[in-house]
């Protein structure tokens, strides 16, 4: 229902002439669609409830004594984010274009005076805004709990956590969008999204752990292999931002801190940015080339 209510792209060329304007129009449409879709509301509520839960549990009973460094609360939130946010973003991205293609509205959309690049970017920007809003709402309630229970995480550290989480969501959204572009049916795209989620969250880490044990990988190899995973890059970026050092991550973290020093945050952030830019560009290219819609 709401998916279609929004096919109200202006045909008026005077008001929407430029590239940016088209992208903005498409983004607004996508944003409104996302807000009114069930899965999105569900995810927003789930994320908010879970962050409240984590904040409560980690601050309960014994208090936190106003620690501003990397605390139990941050660790709990980190775990939750790594589990939920990629899932949310991948599915949001995966559903969008494949869904419209399946319902036939994509043809309709492309018959409007917008280019395919504009469609991809518009959808990406709209979903990105919606995701960030949803995450910010979740973090807002969590911050309220932390403020109420006095302590746990410092404001700077928490802001950094929010920013990095949004960056992770954007990267995973780009991957989801790419999956959506290459899949013919929405179910396939969502299935692929779940598969990617499973690989990124569990399989790659568990595999790398097994490899570390079996092949006695050197620290530099473990580090190099680990940061390819955007989730590991995200985790390290948060920890290095809060702690100025990765020493909580043992020998590999100490190696990274010593070898790369102040370049480390940039490295980790660039991994996340690459995971955004590459899938998105690939998606734009593939969507433009695709003969059938």
């Amino acid at each position: 229902m709401s998916m279609l209510s929004s096919v109200s792209i202006k045909t008026n060329r005077r008001s929407y002439s430029g590239f940016g304007a088209s992208v903005a129009a498409l983004a607004r449409r996508e944003f409104r669609d996302a807000l009114s879709s069930r899965w999105f509301i569900l995810f927003t509520i789930a994320f908010a409830v879970l962050t409240i839960g984590v904040s409560f549990v980690s601050l309960s009973g014994v208090g936190s004594h106003g620690f501003s460094g990397f605390s139990k609360t941050s660790a709990g939130l980190l775990n939750l984010i790594m589990l939920i946010v990629p899932l949310m973003a991948l599915i949001a991205g995966a559903g969008t274009i494949a869904g419209e293609r399946e319902r036939g509205t994509l043809v309709y959309l492309l018959s409007q005076p917008v280019s395919r690049t504009e469609v991809v970017l518009g959808k990406y920007v709209g979903l990105a805004c919606a995701l960030c809003c949803s995450l910010c709402l979740g973090f807002a309630v969590s911050a309220a709990v932390i403020a109420w229970r006095a302590g746990g995480v410092g404001v700077a550290a928490f802001s950094l956590l929010i920013a990095t989480t949004c960056a992770l969501a954007l990267a995973m959204l780009a991957v989801g969008l790419l999956l959506s572009i290459i899949s013919r049916r929405a179910n396939v795209a969502v299935g692929l999204g779940l598969f990617v989620w499973l690989v990124a969250v569990f399989a790659s880490d568990l595999g790398l752990m097994a490899g570390t044990v079996l092949f006695r990988l050197r620290v530099q190899d473990v580090f190099a292999l680990a940061i390819v995973n955007p989730l590991q890059a995200f985790k390290m970026a948060v920890i290095v931002g809060m702690n100025a050092s990765l020493d909580v991550l043992g020998p590999v973290g100490a190696y990274a801190t010593q070898s790369f020093g102040s370049a480390l945050p940039w490295m980790l952030w660039s991994v996340i940015v690459l995971w955004t830019v590459i899938p998105l560009s690939l998606g734009v290219v593939l969507f433009a080339r695709k003969g059938s819609i």
Binding site: L83, D205, M209, V219, Q232, G250
Partner: peptide
């Protein structure tokens, strides 16, 4: 036995 695995702490894995 394998301290390098500490890298994977705080993760769903």
């Amino acid at each position: 036995s394998e301290p390098n695995l500490r890298l994977f702490i705080h993760s769903p894995a």
